[in-house]
């Protein structure tokens, strides 16, 4: 990849050709305030806060301007602040600012931008407040849509379109009345939404908030237990319980994407009815047992019945590798082709 040399705030940096100024800055550890940018999505350039000064060009939107050899850029000036403060103040004037009640508290792009620009309560109070009592859509079992926290960056819409290709939501109406809407403004549960939650994880604020997850204390890499795709997951663990699931961005299989089951279907892990030990039927009743006892029993029965009377059924909840081994075992060790699998969860 061809490298471009440029200067940001007096520092010489290099960036791959094709990167934007914003991406180049972020990659080099330089923060430029932004709201509508997301690394997985095409730039929209709608929040207008990622302005920088490009020498010889004046103020420029950094999320859409590609790097060029020799550009000299500054990310801070009185002029820039004068332009970019107002939009952020206006967003706050139309935003439910009860941050404590918000799932994104302390992990919110809007909070970050506001603190970067030094916004204070007083300076926001001079603005006329908008309506922040719009109805919340709670129809989806996994997440809520709260328009009073929405900043209309369009990241959810672009995610649904560019990444998922579902197009359950789009902008409706226009101007100040614009909303993020399903067809006919129906509840999201009645739309073609598949609840994958890709939009929820990308929402820079708390407009889309998960209902069933909690803040984890540590994370553990694993593989999704649902189907044969084998998506990489990062299980959010609190104490000894899984409280959230996120896609593993480093995993070559799914690059961080998940489906509704992988992301939200983790309840079974901690479910009290989950079978945690092998059960053996004794006297017509299942009784808890040990793995050694159970496996001995199975081995004994295999020998007893022989290959003609045995079939193996394996589970999609096992990894591909496990399934490979079980079919090898069935054919090579047991000597039968009677094996099936339920990759249809």
């Amino acid at each position: 990849m061809e490298k471009i040399k440029l200067t940001i705030d007096g520092m010489a940096i290099t960036a791959d050709r094709g990167k934007t100024i914003l991406e180049a800055a972020l990659d080099n550890g330089i923060y430029i305030p932004h709201l509508c940018h997301h690394q997985d999505l095409a730039p929209a350039a709608v929040c207008r806060v990622c302005l920088v000064e490009v020498e010889g060009r004046g103020h420029t939107i950094s999320c859409r301007t590609p790097v060029e050899e020799g550009l000299t850029i500054s990310t801070e000036s009185d002029h820039l602040n004068k332009i970019r403060r107002i939009p952020v103040e206006l967003i706050f004037a139309n935003h439910d600012t009860d941050c404590i009640a918000c799932t994104r508290n302390n992990n919110c792009q809007l909070q970050r931008v506001a603190s970067y620009l030094g916004l204070e309560r007083d300076s926001m109070d001079r603005m006329r407040m908008g309506n922040i009592e719009k109805p919340i859509d709670t129809s989806n079992p996994f997440f809520d849509r709260n328009p009073n926290r929405c900043i209309y960056c369009g990241i959810c819409i672009r995610t649904c379109d560019e990444i998922q290709n579902i197009n359950a939501i789009d902008f409706a109406s226009r101007g100040y009345k614009m909303t993020v809407s399903t067809f006919g403004d129906n509840p999201i549960a009645d739309s073609r939404c598949e609840s994958c939650g890709e939009c929820v994880v990308r929402c820079p604020v708390g407009a889309l908030s998960p209902k069933t997850t909690m803040e984890p204390s540590r994370s553990v890499k694993s593989v999704c237990t649902y189907c044969g795709v084998g998506c990489g997951v990062e299980l959010g663990v609190r104490g000894n319980s899984v409280v959230s699931v996120e896609g593993d961005r480093d995993n070559a299989v799914n690059h961080g994407s998940l489906c509704v089951k992988g992301r939200y279907g983790f309840e079974f892990i901690n479910h009290r009815e989950r079978i945690r030990k092998p059960l053996i039927k004794k006297n017509g009743k299942f009784e808890e047992s040990t793995w050694d006892e159970a496996l001995d029993l199975v081995a004994k029965k295999f020998r007893e019945y022989g290959k003609e009377k045995v079939a193996v059924f394996s589970s999609a909840k096992c990894s591909n590798e496990d399934n490979y081994v079980i079919q090898k075992f069935t054919r090579a060790v047991l000597g039968t082709n009677s094996i099936d699998h339920c990759a249809r969860l």
Binding site: A168, F171, A172, R174, S181, T182, G184, R192
Partner: peptide
């Protein structure tokens, strides 16, 4: 086109 698109365009 997706039905959300039709609604998006019509309401615009």
């Amino acid at each position: 086109v997706p039905e959300s698109k039709v609604y998006a365009v019509a309401t615009f």
